[in-house]
Nucleic acid binder design. Structure first.
Lengths: 341, 341
DNA sequence: CTGAAAGCGCTTACAG
DNA sequence: CTGAAAGCGCTTACAG
């Protein structure tokens, strides 16, 4: 019989490092934690010992002693398919992961349903298992997440639904202004029947973009009746476009609250024989890979998704270090002109 | 000045539970860990105390004492955009998260580049920070991940590239047989010029599906010259389709190694005026949401992605518990007939 | 079935 | 600048 034993060598401890460096454990601890209160010679000796033994501090022991877990929860209150299906999230998570990468923290993935926080997650988040949390998108109705910030350092992606309800930290763009800009572009093109495929009505980003669209049309004295809500997915974009076309076959433009939905909308427009932007001009939102993945390159409102993720992580890191941090951080958007409008 | 102090109440300890229940710490520990060696009365008393104090065991202390981290690394050796862009991964991660959810483990997300393991990740994985790892997809060239299983319990999504190199645990489908089945469907349709948009040549799944396509054509005495490699992304599917069409404008079928690539291929086929499946029949692979998201519903080879994720997690959980586990687990595939072939 | 005691590997005042 | 000592909150043989 072959030896199935995994010879998992037991890792060296602080104690051993101290012994081989000929100093006390306190001193090793100091150099490991970058204290300046160490003489150059000792520093060198300890560093050498660490190197030699290939020492890595034990996370659990450290956490127990200093009451920090060095873990951050990445809470995703979205359906898995939506989370993974939207390039917007990819960019945000990329930014978060990138910013965390250069810290000592690790990211604990917490997939959650949009509304019901599981008992396990509640316990986990409140049970001292993480030092902080990043909540990647906002829905109303999730009171637990909304008030999580009272108990734990939390930064949100997107503004809270009720600004007065709690003092959240968050990063966002001015969704209303951005949507107004996108809609104005359509207006400047001379379009008169400008529809919107809006986001979910229970999400601030969804509501605000709708407001921006409305504002632009109002200023221009154009009708604001052509509105259908999607859920940010491609299929909902297609479904919404069909409904819009059925309601007004003569519409000549559509502002879509996400590029992914715009992709779905575009395929329906072509299916129905509309030329883009000739018959119908379309402006998307996000400037995600979805905007350039299809047959027709989308004109869209760019938001710096990856940078937003980075900023979210940076804010949380500052909070965790006790450094002063702005409560909200609003990033710039801009029009990106391509083929569809 | 308002009190900005976060009154973060300090959580109750085992000690306190013991005190209020009137027993020793050992006993509380036993009931917390589900030992049967406890009298009913004591069990009731302790349970009540836990309930009353809202006690949650301290993870760090526990880890330190029993040398388990209760954490599992979810290693994703893919570009972020690809990882998030492919519904296949969404399903796998969903399955993993679901299986882990009912355990006491948490999932540490480790986004990695396909080839270069970062120093931080290496340290993390090897530094005793996790009890095990799930590596979600396989590339050749990544020697570090390939041999990670020698040091840590690891289960892979997809077979290892060099079966002899190490005794990995993995779950997979028979990609070659599955691709052969898909290609045979095209052959039975009477198609004669059957191309393939293959996966990356450095991934077992890519290679095996190509082999299956080849095998089917060989058996049928059909030419195997129409092959182009994509990278499983939609845009690569589109690009590959263009190249294929340029090489043989008369091709009448294409087997595509993933639904996402098939989506890209379909849009190019329509762009070039080909009817589907009239002029060109297409068969995809995965049966992911991508297969039914587009204008034309894809006929495809179904693989049980979510179940594969669940199985991966279950295998790792068994390994961690020291329970006997099969080294490999091959799941069933099947044809799903829809519009495209 | 239950408890006293040692130990897990760190950090952190406190002296010096 | 450095060390001895206590303590973080658990688990786990070992007795009884």
């Amino acid at each position: 019989m072959t030896t199935e034993q995994q010879t998992r060598r037991i890792p060296p401890t602080l104690e051993e490092v101290a012994a081989t460096a000929g100093v006390s454990r306190s001193t090793v601890s100091r150099v490991v934690n970058g204290s300046t209160q160490v003489s150059p010679e000792v520093l060198a000796a300890v560093t050498a010992a660490i190197e030699q033994l290939n020492y890595v501090p034990n996370r659990a022991a450290r956490s127990l002693a200093n009451r920090q877990t060095m873990a951050i929860a990445l809470v995703v209150p979205e359906e898995t398919t939506r989370f993974f299906g939207d390039p917007y999230f990819a960019a945000v998570v990329h930014g978060i992961a990138h910013a965390i990468e250069s810290s000592d923290y690790v990211l604990n993935l917490q997939l959650a349903s949009p509304f019901a926080p599981s008992a396990k997650m509640t316990k986990y988040l409140l049970g001292g298992n993480v030092d902080g949390a990043i909540v990647i998108s906002h829905h109303s109705g999730d009171h637990f997440l909304a008030t999580l910030g009272d108990t734990l350092p939390v930064v949100f992606g997107g503004r809270p639904l009720h600004p007065d309800e709690h003092n959240s930290y968050f990063v966002d763009v001015d969704n209303a202004a951005a949507a107004e800009m996108g809609t104005n572009h359509l207006i400047e093109l001379g379009r008169k029947r400008i529809a919107i495929i809006a986001g979910p009505a229970d999400m601030p980003a969804g509501m605000d973009r709708t407001d921006g669209w409305r504002r632009a049309l109002q200023s221009a004295g154009l009708p604001q009746n052509l509105i259908v809500h999607g859920d940010f997915s491609m299929v909902s974009g297609a479904r919404s476009m069909r409904e819009l076309l059925d309601r007004d076959p003569e519409l000549d433009a559509v502002f879509v609250a996400s590029d992914l939905m715009a992709t779905g909308a575009v395929s329906v427009l072509r299916e129905r024989g509309r030329s883009i932007p000739g018959d119908v001009a379309v402006v998307g939102f996000d400037d995600s890979p979805a905007a350039i993945g299809g047959d027709i390159q989308l004109t869209t409102v760019h938001q710096p998704s990856m940078e937003m993720g980075e900023k979210m992580a940076e804010m949380l890191l500052r909070l965790l270090r006790g450094e002063p941090t702005e409560r909200e951080w609003i990033m710039q958007t801009r029009m990106v002109m391509r083929e569809s409008a």
